[in-house]
């Protein structure tokens, strides 16, 4: 147990971060039926925003600035790359998402010169703490709690508010929701606002643990978070969170077993298993087949 504990803690922490990113995927997919491939790059961009913001602003101000900038960027990506293709076939939108991801990676590479940037140390959450005889950064401990708090807040937002109701309606049936007077563009923008804000928080936690940011670093966590979203059942927020934790824990346990090469592969193996056994994921709704 003492040997497994650090990996378990690490897994829960990484899992929480994946969960925060996964929510962005699952919400966008729920409404637009689109894998937002650029989401992982928005997550990376949030990391770079923090690097540059902390260089000139006080650290707590820059946290707020980072979240705002990330939100702006998420909405901008939606407006530029997805909105013009609203009536296009799904494949075109997906290609546009891949192109956007390619563009963002190249822009980040250009701005940073391809070098890894040191992530600023956020006081308190980057401090070391000892738990059960095992020393770790405080961020490892607070990630799962912060994740759960944010998720509960989000669920309340979706269940109790008017915009939340509009989002649920839009994810159930896009066209009918429009006919009922829901301004679909606003709903979609709001989805991207929430998704990007959570990705920004996720990136704050993730990079506090990893110390450096590079332009392509977000691609893999992004994909894994998507896998988490599929695992939990795409469109379902509790599913995305549970999926995030499962993916995170199984990944770190693989590393703990000395099979670091396979830590990425395990994620995808889980994905394929769930797709074959239960294609809708753990909490997914059964899609209706229309001819």
């Amino acid at each position: 147990m003492a040997r497994i504990l650090p990996y378990l803690l690490g897994g829960i922490s990484v899992g929480g971060q994946y969960a925060l990113i996964a929510i962005g995927y699952t919400m966008v997919y729920g409404i637009l039926r689109l894998i937002n491939f650029a989401h992982g790059d928005i997550f990376t961009a949030a990391g770079f925003f923090m690097v540059y913001a902390a260089a000139s602003l006080p650290i707590y101000v820059s946290v707020a600035v980072v979240i705002l900038l990330t939100i702006f960027m998420g909405v901008l990506v939606e407006r530029v790359a997805y909105k013009p293709l609203r009536s296009a076939p799904r494949m075109s939108v997906m290609i546009s998402a891949i192109g956007m991801s390619y563009l963002l990676q190249n822009v980040m590479w250009y701005i940073t010169g391809g070098l890894a940037k040191r992530y600023p140390i956020i006081p308190w959450i980057s401090n070391s703490v000892t738990i059960l005889g095992y020393t770790t950064k405080r961020v490892t401990i607070i990630t799962p709690f912060l994740t759960l708090i944010l998720v509960v807040a989000l669920v309340i937002l979706i269940q109790k508010t008017k915009i939340g109701m509009a989002m649920r309606a839009a994810s159930r049936d896009f066209e009918t929701a429009q006919l009922m007077g829901i301004k679909i563009d606003n709903v979609i923008s709001f989805t991207f606002v929430v998704g990007s804000a959570l990705a920004a928080v996720g990136s704050l936690l993730y990079f506090s643990n990893y110390a450096t940011v590079t332009p392509v670093v977000g691609a893999m966590p992004g994909l894994k978070a998507f896998v988490a979203a599929v695992f939990g059942g795409i469109g379902s927020i509790p599913g995305a969170v549970l999926g995030g934790f499962i993916i995170g824990i199984s990944e770190t346990l693989t590393k703990g077993a000395g099979l670091t090469t396979f830590s990425d592969a395990v994620t995808f193996a889980l994905l394929i298993i769930i797709l074959v056994v239960k294609p809708t994921g753990l909490f997914g709704e059964k899609p209706t087949q229309k001819v």
């Binding site: 894998i35 599929v230 797709l275």
Partner: peptide, 22 residues
């Protein structure tokens, strides 16, 4: 994998490529 549809197929094949690489 081929039982899956559109996006699921895309992500599953992407996953297989990563597994092969690992």
């Amino acid at each position: 994998v081929l039982r899956l549809k559109s996006d699921y197929l895309a992500i599953a094949t992407l996953g297989f490529a990563e597994i092969i690489r690992a």
